[in-house]
């Protein structure tokens, strides 16, 4: 292949949660534009192993943009230079020969680094556990079509539900706020009749847990929406704020 690239990678290396990390340079050669970004890292890792060095740790699984596991900040942007894609969907044709690429983890106080580029996003699970569900037990459901849902609401609920829980919104926000993530779940369930019953407790509990986890405040910069690989809309944050206000007022009364 003639049009392969030579690149310099500056990768964040950190042995463990308590160690301090640093950027380390790695030259890579013969990078094909058809490779995915993570395949490029695979090649680097194979070379490192062959030399007896420790490969770079990074999270990934589905490699098709849906599991939400991959989580790199590339040249200062969560999930890299393209909009609407996850790290694993990024291909090397987005770069050119001679580029230097900075690769860092999703940083936030609530996402401690485990090793190198892998971080702990357990806080997101705990926020969902605080109320991101409908309390229905198996076997208690009525016939699905007994509950018609207006198509517009159903479509909006679906859009909110496509959040993959990756945390790019947090990593991008200067306040490390998790509002986009939390509001996506709150909105999905608030828009559907099944979710309305518990809507008020849900929003209060989820927001409370979000605060406990140490995520920052939302100051409406909108950076999260820009970097969200699934295009989760800021409208969800507005909806959550309304839900939250109504719920807080009711609670006081």
């Amino acid at each position: 292949m003639s049009n392969t690239m030579k690149l310099t990678l500056k990768i964040w290396r950190q042995k463990g949660p308590k160690d301090s990390g640093k950027l380390v340079d790695y030259p890579v050669d013969h990078v094909s534009p058809d490779m995915s970004f993570l395949e490029m890292l695979d090649v680097l890792n194979e070379q490192l192993v062959e030399k007896g060095e420790e490969p770079v740790a990074f999270d990934h699984d589905c490699r098709e943009g849906i599991c939400g596991m991959c989580s790199l900040v590339i040249n200062g942007r969560a999930h890299g230079p393209q909009t609407g894609v996850t790290t694993c969907q990024l291909h090397m044709r987005s770069f050119k020969d001679g580029d230097t690429i900075y690769i860092e983890p999703f940083r936030a106080n609530s996402f401690p680094v485990i090793k190198d580029l892998a971080v702990d996003r357990g806080a997101f699970d705990r926020i969902i556990q605080a109320g991101g569900y409908v309390s229905v037990n198996t076997g208690a459901a009525q016939d699905a079509n007994n509950l018609p849902v207006n198509k517009n609401d159903a479509d909006k609920a679906f859009s909110a539900a496509t959040c993959i829980g990756c945390g790019a919104c947090v990593a991008t926000c200067k306040n490390a706020s998790a509002m986009l993530f939390v509001s996506a779940k709150v909105s999905q369930l608030a828009l559907l009749p099944q979710g309305k019953v518990e809507a008020q407790d849900r929003v209060l509990n989820m927001v409370h847990q979000m605060d406990l986890e140490g995520f920052g405040n939302c100051t409406n910069t909108g950076a999260c929406e820009v970097e969200c690989p699934k295009g989760i809309s800021l409208d969800n944050i507005a909806r959550m704020n309304r839900e939250y206000m109504v719920a807080s007022l009711k609670k006081e009364n």
Binding site: V136, A141, Q142, A144, A154, L189, L192, Q194
Partner: peptide, 9 residues
């Protein structure tokens, strides 16, 4: 039925 009750859109 179960999934719809859970809010699966």
């Amino acid at each position: 039925d179960q999934c719809v009750a859970q809010g699966v859109p």
